[in-house]
Design a protein around this nucleic acid. Structure first.
Lengths: 124, 124
DNA sequence: CTTGACATACGAATTACTTAGTACTATAAA
DNA sequence: TTTATAGTACTAAGTAATTCGTATGTCAAG
């Protein structure tokens, strides 16, 4: 059976970001990183990481007593998928109105656009 | 008390889009529009629109027997807020990596970037 | 006046998300 | 060997999101 949609929820994404930073991580690693910013229980982190494994975002492997987790996909793959889903849902699939928003709300500046134009030149 | 976060969920957004298109709408209007694409109960739509009113996205006014709903905020305001929230959550607040994604995945084309550059010129 | 159509009000059921407690196991230190 | 520590497994509970059913009221047509 297909794993449905299973998009990353906010808390799941927060954990994934930490794992991507590290390439590899234990529950304790992530637990301690999260603790810097907010109160959370160790078992909560464990549950989340187990869910992430079930959803196919993390792979685990036993090392001594603990599990070592690593990302199943690159950050670019996953973030790219989230971006596509967002554009589909909010902008009906076309990126141009998104860009209009970025420009009009000054989220993006002229010099960044120029930087992008240069980037396109390099790609092709 | 502050209204918490109350971001638009996917189904709520779907309804809001239809109301924005119409400026003003009854439950029946939206119900019939949604029916074109999927099976849904009239009361489901009613509940959703009531929630949208509670969250402050819709305003209602009685006309004869039925309520007439209208948007409490413009589409640009709300979509802009969603975009900002997305950028914060996924890209830690900076729009530039988002742009990089758009370019690399060919979601956005060179000519659109040029169009944007021209738009910036007009703004300032 | 009765009845059918159409509206709201209320509430319930299901699923997903988020958090965390308790029980159990294995290792390492005393 | 006993015990403290650090790990997993299992379970539960609360809230939000999504869907829809039943009860009820009102108006208009017959």
């Amino acid at each position: 059976m297909r794993p449905k949609h299973t998009t990353l929820t906010p808390q799941e994404l927060e954990i994934m970001k930490l794992v991507w930073q590290r390439e590899t991580a234990t529950v304790r690693d992530i637990y301690e990183a999260l603790l810097e910013h907010r109160k959370i229980a160790y078992t909560t982190v464990m549950t989340m990481m187990k869910i992430l494994e079930t959803k196919g975002y993390l792979k685990k492997r036993r090392q001594d007593r603990a599990f070592i987790y690593r990302p199943a996909h690159t950050k670019n793959q996953v973030i790219g998928g989230m971006l596509r889903e967002f554009i589909d849902r909010v902008f009906n699939g076309s990126a141009e109105p998104l860009l209009v928003h970025l420009v009009k709300t000054r989220h993006i500046r002229e010099k960044d656009l120029h930087k992008m134009a240069r980037m396109i030149e390099e790609i092709k």
